[in-house]
Amino acid sequence: MTEYKLVVVGAGGVGKSALTIQLIQNHFVDEYDPTIEDSYRKQVVIDGETCLLDILDTAGQEEYSAMRDQYMRTGEGFLCVFAINNTKSFEDIHHYREQIKRVKDSEDVPMVLVGNKCDLPSRTVDTKQAQDLARSYGIPFIETSAKTRQGVDDAFYTLVREIRKHKEKMSKDGKKKKKKSKTKCVIM
């Protein structure tokens, strides 16, 4: 069974824990209790493949930012979460993405942009803004509501699919490099 290491990042209060708990335990946590770091595991079937999701729910508070490099190193894919009623959390996505790329030393890291709290009427981040940002990053965008469960499975499952595509691409690139290195030079 394939294991996928997913990391949920975003500013404090955007609903990272609520999304994760909704996926794992099928219930909505409405009281806000700032996370330092929590880890969850769940076995699911995605596109006919049974897999184990190892999900790291991270601290959004700035005082825990020193811990970010460590979990970013171990993560295979990242859910970059903002709240649709919090423009600052949307603007912060850029910083999370840049930090992930720096730590992973790669421009090509599996990510999904997630606009959470889409059940709320007080939207300050337009869907088109988020779609445009995701398009500019070359990553999928999904709106979710941890409260109603809308888009929750889709967000995590899409990230797994992005990781699969990335692994497939990397193995193809690896095979191309191996083929090239088999060419021999004969000096007579």
Rank of each mutant, 00 (worst) to 15 (best):
K16Q: 04
D57G: 02
R41E: 05
S39C: 12
E62I: 14
K5H: 11
T20K: 06
Y4P: 14
K16C: 05
T58V: 14
L19K: 11
Q43S: 05
C51K: 05
G60I: 11
C51E: 07
S39P: 01
G60H: 12
T35E: 00
Y64R: 03
T58F: 15
P34E: 05
E62T: 10
T35P: 00
T2S: 13
L19R: 00
K42L: 10
V7F: 15
E49H: 10
G15D: 00
G13N: 12
Y40T: 03
A11M: 13
Y40I: 03
A59K: 02
D57S: 02
L23A: 15
Y64P: 12
Y64G: 15
D33F: 15
A59F: 15
E31M: 07
Q22H: 13
C51T: 09
L52Y: 11
P34N: 00
L23H: 15
V44H: 06
N26K: 06
I24V: 14
E37W: 01
P34A: 07
V44R: 05
D30W: 10
T58G: 08
N26T: 07
V8Y: 04
Q43I: 04
Y40A: 07
T50P: 15
I21F: 13
K16Y: 00
V45P: 05
G48E: 12
A18Y: 00
T20L: 14
V9R: 01
D57R: 00
I36N: 01
G10Q: 00
T2Y: 10
Y40D: 05
V7R: 07
A59N: 15
E63P: 08
Q61R: 03
I46L: 12
G13D: 14
I36G: 02
E37V: 04
G12E: 09
D33E: 07
E37Y: 02
V44I: 09
T50S: 11
T20I: 11
E49L: 04
T35S: 03
G60W: 06
D57L: 02
D47V: 03
K5F: 02
V14Y: 08
Y32C: 04
V14K: 08
T35V: 02
S17I: 06
D33A: 11
Q61T: 14
N26F: 15
T50L: 05
D54R: 03
V45L: 09
L23G: 15
Q43W: 04
D30G: 10
S39N: 09
A11K: 05
Q61L: 14
